[in-house]
């Protein structure tokens, strides 16, 4: 699988324009700031227990084993999504797909950089804003900094990562990003 993966490296410069699903922008209310985050490299990584050490070494960030957790290092974050599933997000210009290509152990690394869109929700009422449509307990006790989970927001699925006490990263699929941004905007306006 290594060969196929390596070919899809996205590092070469494109001769054409990139049009992200959401053309940036931000929304600020009294207690919340929403910001569309810039494109990032992402892979969906699947692997059995035996391959975790090798993949951790290749990626430079450890793959957490505990549910609802994440690990971050040097602009790269690995989110536990399931017992053999991680979302690896690289915001530092690296290429996690290429990094995994050399790993011999069993795994599946699939590029999903363009599948997902990320929105940052920050401020005093960040959790309240997300709780307008997310049924999880987002208190710091139940969802501390670094907590990560696939869950729902309104009528769509999201991946939620708490990056700071008052900051969340909301990831959703590309075509749901209009809905998610509109939902969060409405919720941010209403958060009391």
């Amino acid at each position: 699988m290594a060969k196929a993966a390596a070919k899809r490296s996205a590092s070469a410069a494109a001769s054409i324009e990139r049009h992200p699903a959401l053309a940036g922008g931000e929304v600020t209310t009294a207690g919340v700031r929403l910001a569309v985050l810039p494109p990032a490299e992402r892979i969906s990584l699947r692997a059995p227990e035996a391959s975790i050490t090798a993949l951790t070494r290749a990626l430079g960030v450890s793959l957490p084993k505990a549910p609802k957790t994440s690990a971050a290092k040097a602009g790269r974050t690995a989110l536990w999504l399931g017992p053999d599933e991680w979302l690896v997000i690289d915001e530092a210009g690296g290429d996690p797909l290429a990094d995994c290509a050399g790993v011999k152990g069993l795994h599946s690394a699939v590029g999903i950089s363009h599948r997902n869109v990320a929105i940052s929700v920050s401020g005093r009422q960040a959790a309240d804003t997300i709780n307008a449509g997310c049924p999880q307990d987002l208190s710091l006790a139940a969802f501390p900094v670094g907590a990560a989970s696939r869950t729902v927001l309104g009528k769509v699925e999201i991946v939620l990562l708490r990056t700071q006490e008052d900051t969340f990263r909301v990831e959703c699929w590309r075509s749901f990003s209009d809905y998610v941004l509109a939902f969060l905007t409405k919720a941010a306006t209403d958060a009391a």
Partner: peptide, 30 residues
């Protein structure tokens, strides 16, 4: 156009055809 593609030669019309897969953010430019 300088971006990765998974290029399928296939047809849902019965004529010669291709399906050009490109990373979504490049879809419009391609």
């Amino acid at each position: 156009c300088g971006v990765p593609t998974r290029l399928f030669r296939m047809s849902f019309t019965g004529d010669r055809g291709f399906e050009v897969n490109v990373p979504a953010d490049y879809g419009q430019a391609v």
